[in-house]
Simulated scan of single mutants.
Amino acid sequence: MRKMLVAAAACFCAAALLCLPAGAAEEEEAKKYKTKEVMKEAFKGPLLKKVAGGEASDEDKKKLHDMLVAMSKNEAPKGDAESWKKLTSALVKASKAAVDGDEGAGDMLKKAANCKACHSAHKP
């Protein structure tokens, strides 16, 4: 019985250690893009407009989604964290719909990418 408990504990520790690098890589991926970079490349640049307009390649859609996921994991520059989470979650959901090829994704992106809503509450 004691050997089984020791073996179970060893297996549990091994599994925890194996999962640790994956979590670190995921967190590193989240820090890939800073909010300022996303604003410049996706919102001020043509990326979001191309995806919302249905003119983007699959690679562009994936890049936008990755950028918005990263931005959603960044801290809000100013304002309420719950508001930041709500607004960025809507962007992530819309970009995921675009990646998945949903018909209404363009309209979702246009609605979620409301500059004034975010900037009023979160732009420093």
Rank of each mutant, 00 (worst) to 15 (best):
P21T: 11
V38N: 06
M67F: 05
T35D: 02
L68V: 12
G101S: 03
A52P: 07
S83F: 01
A70V: 06
K40A: 15
T35K: 03
A112Y: 03
L109D: 02
D58T: 08
G53L: 09
V99D: 04
M39E: 10
W84T: 06
W84G: 04
M71Y: 01
F12C: 15
H65M: 06
K86T: 11
P124M: 10
C118D: 09
C115R: 12
G79K: 01
K36N: 11
K111T: 14
K50R: 13
K36F: 09
E82G: 01
K50T: 04
V92I: 05
T88R: 00
A7D: 08
A90R: 01
K78M: 12
E27H: 13
A94D: 04
K93G: 01
D102W: 00
K3V: 10
S57M: 09
A98E: 03
L18R: 04
K116A: 15
M108N: 05
K50W: 03
L47E: 05
A113F: 07
K34D: 10
P46W: 06
K85R: 13
A90N: 02
T35V: 15
E29Q: 14
D60W: 07
V92D: 06
M1C: 07
K78D: 09
A25L: 15
E59N: 09
E59T: 14
M4R: 14
W84I: 08
M108W: 04
E26W: 14
A25C: 10
C115W: 10
A42R: 07
G106Q: 03
G23N: 14
E41P: 04
K34E: 12
N114E: 12
L91G: 07
V99H: 01
P46R: 09
G79F: 01
L17K: 05
A24F: 11
A117K: 11
K110Q: 13
A94I: 03
L68C: 08
A76G: 09
A30C: 12
A15F: 13
M1F: 12
G79R: 02
A94W: 02
K123F: 11
G45Q: 09
V92K: 01
A10F: 09
K73L: 08
A7K: 12
E27F: 09
D60S: 08
G23L: 15
K123Q: 14
V92N: 05
A14V: 14
D100F: 02
G23I: 11
A10V: 15
K49W: 04
A81D: 11
N114F: 05
L48I: 05
L18C: 14
L18I: 13
E37T: 13
L87M: 10
H122N: 10
A8F: 11
A16Q: 10
S120W: 10
D66G: 05
N114T: 03
C115E: 10
H119K: 06
K34V: 10
L18T: 06
A97H: 01
A22P: 03
M108P: 00
A56K: 06
A90P: 00
M1S: 15
G53E: 10
A113C: 10
K61W: 00
C115P: 00
P77T: 07
N114Q: 08
